[in-house]
Design a binder for these strands. Structure first.
Lengths: 131, 131
DNA sequence: TTACAGGTTCCAGTAACCGGAGGGTCAAGC
DNA sequence: GCTTGACCCTCCGGTTACTGGAACCTGTAA
């Protein structure tokens, strides 16, 4: 896969992917012509990072998240406690998003109109957005 | 309230609050001595922005989210569709966090050890992190 | 072989802060 | 009344995580 394909697959801009290689987040191979060559593992990593970044994790956090993602042996207890900490962070973010959602919805509910699309949408699945 | 109090109340660094004033996100008053004066409404806005930023919304998104938060009249349909779009974005983020959570947990489950703390924690509330 | 999409590096700019210099303010203690 | 120390102010430069552009190479298609 070329970098363009990787960009489409991961949802990240080409520029960003090159930047991620530069800072050592990913290590795509190279073809004879100098083009970067992305494996499906690289794509998975990029997708994972894209998601993490859009959810407010820093690059350094992404780096450790990736190490968890990659590390299949998990020899040390450190790694596991790290993962646990990250899960706490993820759970907190979920709670905060739900709180934001409520805040916005309550603001919407503030007036008397019966035709608020947000309230309508809420009626479909009230706070039960658990996938 | 001074900026220090506002920082403590909102969880944002003092520097960041000054920056938010500079770019016009908030408009605290000024005391005779030149110190910024924060109302409880300002604190609420700051807390809201702090949360939004930590969840990956850009400053510009925060600006529109704040406008929703502030706008009690909501005269136009535009504002409501904007809110609806943001709710979609929030819901998507929740789904993505849940997917990340699963990814990490599955990686953890990859080996044969029975004593993984992440699995233990999951046992408490499997995927039911809906607040 | 010319056109053009897409790849490469390198360099400069932007967004969203963050730290520090240099200086004013205010309540507490001597 | 003066000092000390915590807190406030502005201004300026640096950092993180990209983003756009210039200048150039590569591969297919007409």
């Amino acid at each position: 896969m070329t970098i363009g394909d990787a960009a489409e697959a991961s949802g990240l801009p080409v520029k960003t992917i090159r930047y991620y290689e530069e800072i050592g987040l990913i290590h795509p191979g190279r073809c004879a012509n100098g083009y970067r060559e992305f494996s499906s593992a690289d794509i998975h990593k990029l997708t994972f990072v894209a998601r993490s970044r859009s959810l407010g994790f820093t690059i350094e956090e992404c780096r450790t998240l990736l190490s968890l993602y990659e590390d299949r042996s998990r020899a040390s207890a450190d790694v596991r406690s790290l993962a646990s900490g990250h899960l706490d962070q993820i759970d907190l973010k979920i709670v905060e998003l739900q709180a934001m959602r409520r805040t916005l919805v309550e603001r919407c509910r503030g007036d008397d109109r019966p035709d608020c699309p947000i309230i309508d949408r809420l009626a479909e699945g009230r706070e039960e957005h658990t996938a």
